[in-house]
Amino acid sequence: MNLLRKLLFPFAILYGLITSIRNFLFDKGILKSYSFDLPIIAVGNLSVGGTGKTPQIEYLIRLLSDKYKIATLSRGYKRQSNGFVLADATSDATILGDEPFQFFQKFATIQVAVDADRKNGIERLLGQQEKPEVILLDDAFQHRKVKAGFYILLTSYGDLYSNDIVLPTGNLRESSSGAKRANVVIVTKCPSNLSLDEQNEIKNKLKIAENQQLYFTYIDYDEYIYSENKKIKVDEIKSFDKVLVAGIAKPEPFFAYLQNANDASLSFPDHHNFTDKDILEIKNLAQNNIIITTEKDYVRLKGSLPNEQLFYLPIKSSFISGSENFDKTILNYVERSTTNRKLY
């Protein structure tokens, strides 16, 4: 923890008090939360920074989209549009934000919407002629104005919310006591061989309640990299000289998975809007070598770098164990909520 963050500790106490009062007012019904007559699953975290929300949302899309009409609703971080936007053929990352645009490109059968006001976004989605049957709220754990039917809380391995404090001294958006609102807690970005002893140790640190489920996931990298019209096996390109580009919160595992001693790597802030200067730097560094970036950054870089040079590496969230039980929990919630809706 740097000196400035330590000096800001009095403000952390004040911030923690304000967020605790806000949560108390919502818990007691003094501030109103709005419920909706369909299954709504909120995925979020207590901390700022990357805990793996995007691969978790994609996991839920794959789990549910064969059986239900799915919509995702995100804030659309760093987008250059305002209000409610429903993705269509004219949309791009500047209109939607990088992660919603990634959903839109990958999953042709779902609706993708952005709105900082989640209540308004849900109402607008339900006003469409093609109404969703399930809504996935992306990064909405603190959005108390909407009461979701099911909450999934993510926390990163090695950066657990139980070991942190609130902003600006720490990285938490609210006190770790907010974790009690979660139905499921997922520890993300774990080593794939995480032992049962360490899982139990983490469970005790997080103080998981009896009514909550705990799971552990790891980042599973694709065996191919992809361009607009080509794919290459990762094993084949690891020995190539290349440039790796990442604008994500914690790029080290991405670099480590692909990098050899001769590779160059460029790291940018999370959700970075690449400037002309950035593009020129990448081109000059790459020359005729291939450029590999994250899937999230690819949607921003596509069109600015040569198609034959630019590739991306997809990732997904995989469960160390218990995936069947997690799937059953989600499917049971959605089916139960959908059945109740039809009955009443």
Results as ranks from 00 to 15, higher is better:
residue 161 Y to R: 06
residue 226 Y to S: 07
residue 160 L to C: 08
residue 208 I to P: 12
residue 202 I to C: 09
residue 225 I to F: 10
residue 228 E to V: 14
residue 165 I to W: 03
residue 157 Y to C: 00
residue 160 L to H: 01
residue 158 G to N: 03
residue 172 L to T: 03
residue 187 V to E: 04
residue 153 L to S: 00
residue 192 S to D: 05
residue 229 N to L: 01
residue 163 N to R: 12
residue 215 Y to F: 15
residue 231 K to H: 11
residue 164 D to S: 11
residue 208 I to M: 12
residue 211 N to L: 04
residue 189 K to H: 03
residue 179 A to S: 13
residue 221 Y to L: 09
residue 231 K to P: 02
residue 219 I to W: 00
residue 206 L to C: 02
residue 236 E to D: 15
residue 162 S to A: 15
residue 194 L to F: 07
residue 197 D to W: 02
residue 239 S to A: 15
residue 163 N to K: 11
residue 180 K to V: 14
residue 208 I to K: 10
residue 240 F to G: 01
residue 229 N to Q: 08
residue 238 K to S: 07
residue 159 D to Y: 06
residue 214 L to D: 05
residue 200 N to M: 07
residue 232 I to R: 11
residue 154 L to Q: 01
residue 215 Y to G: 10
residue 153 L to V: 07
residue 159 D to P: 00
residue 226 Y to N: 02
residue 163 N to E: 14
residue 164 D to A: 11
residue 212 Q to P: 09
residue 180 K to I: 13
residue 220 D to V: 05
residue 237 I to L: 12
residue 218 Y to M: 06
residue 229 N to P: 03
residue 195 S to I: 01
residue 162 S to M: 06
residue 191 P to K: 09
residue 203 K to A: 14
residue 200 N to H: 10
residue 182 A to W: 00
residue 153 L to G: 00
residue 176 S to R: 13
residue 208 I to T: 05
residue 191 P to V: 00
residue 154 L to W: 02
residue 213 Q to P: 03
residue 191 P to Q: 12
residue 200 N to A: 05
residue 218 Y to D: 00
residue 225 I to V: 15
residue 192 S to M: 12
residue 195 S to W: 02
residue 192 S to K: 14
